[in-house]
Computed example of a mutant assay.
Amino acid sequence: MTAELPRYYFRVRDNGAFVFRVETENRQRRIEMDQIAVVNIRNGDIKPHGGRTLSPEDKDEIARWMAERTELLAQRDIDDIYRAVDYLNTTAHWAQSKATDAQLDEVTDALLLAMHDLRSVLVRKKSDRLMGKVGKD
């Protein structure tokens, strides 16, 4: 464990975090966490907690965390998509080499509909991108 704790702690939640200021400078040398704000990554809201006024340092640290968190979540989204590609490949191999007729009967319709939906979205989006590039030339 490091000797010095960070000045802020962010308790992550679905759309952002609860922000706490970490205090260790007290008589008992205990760690105290004082909630100072609630942040929402999706809409960028920063709401001070309990009638507080956030200092410029508080705002800067929250903005830095929000930018880092947004980047991390975007990286995770792409990683999830690459993992989905791997699952599709694994599923194709399973269907070709290991699946029983009963197993295929159970999953084929759901897989075909999901793949059709995905293909439709991807083709439409690619077409939109290509048409946008043609219009800009």
Results as ranks from 00 to 15, higher is better:
4 E>P: 05
5 L>R: 14
5 L>E: 11
6 P>Q: 04
8 Y>R: 02
9 Y>V: 06
10 F>L: 04
11 R>I: 04
13 R>S: 08
13 R>G: 07
13 R>H: 13
14 D>K: 13
15 N>E: 10
17 A>H: 03
17 A>T: 07
18 F>E: 15
18 F>M: 07
18 F>G: 04
22 V>N: 09
22 V>W: 05
23 E>L: 14
23 E>T: 13
25 E>Y: 01
25 E>W: 06
26 N>C: 10
27 R>N: 09
28 Q>C: 07
28 Q>N: 11
29 R>Y: 04
29 R>C: 08
30 R>F: 11
30 R>I: 08
30 R>D: 14
32 E>T: 12
32 E>K: 14
32 E>L: 15
33 M>E: 12
33 M>F: 04
35 Q>H: 04
36 I>S: 00
36 I>D: 00
37 A>P: 03
37 A>S: 05
38 V>M: 06
40 N>F: 04
40 N>W: 03
42 R>Y: 14
43 N>S: 02
43 N>A: 08
43 N>V: 02
44 G>T: 05
48 P>Y: 00
49 H>V: 02
50 G>Y: 03
51 G>H: 06
51 G>D: 04
52 R>G: 04
53 T>Y: 13
53 T>K: 14
54 L>W: 00
54 L>A: 03
54 L>P: 04
56 P>V: 10
58 D>I: 00
59 K>N: 11
61 E>K: 13
61 E>M: 11
62 I>A: 01
68 E>K: 11
68 E>T: 13
68 E>W: 09
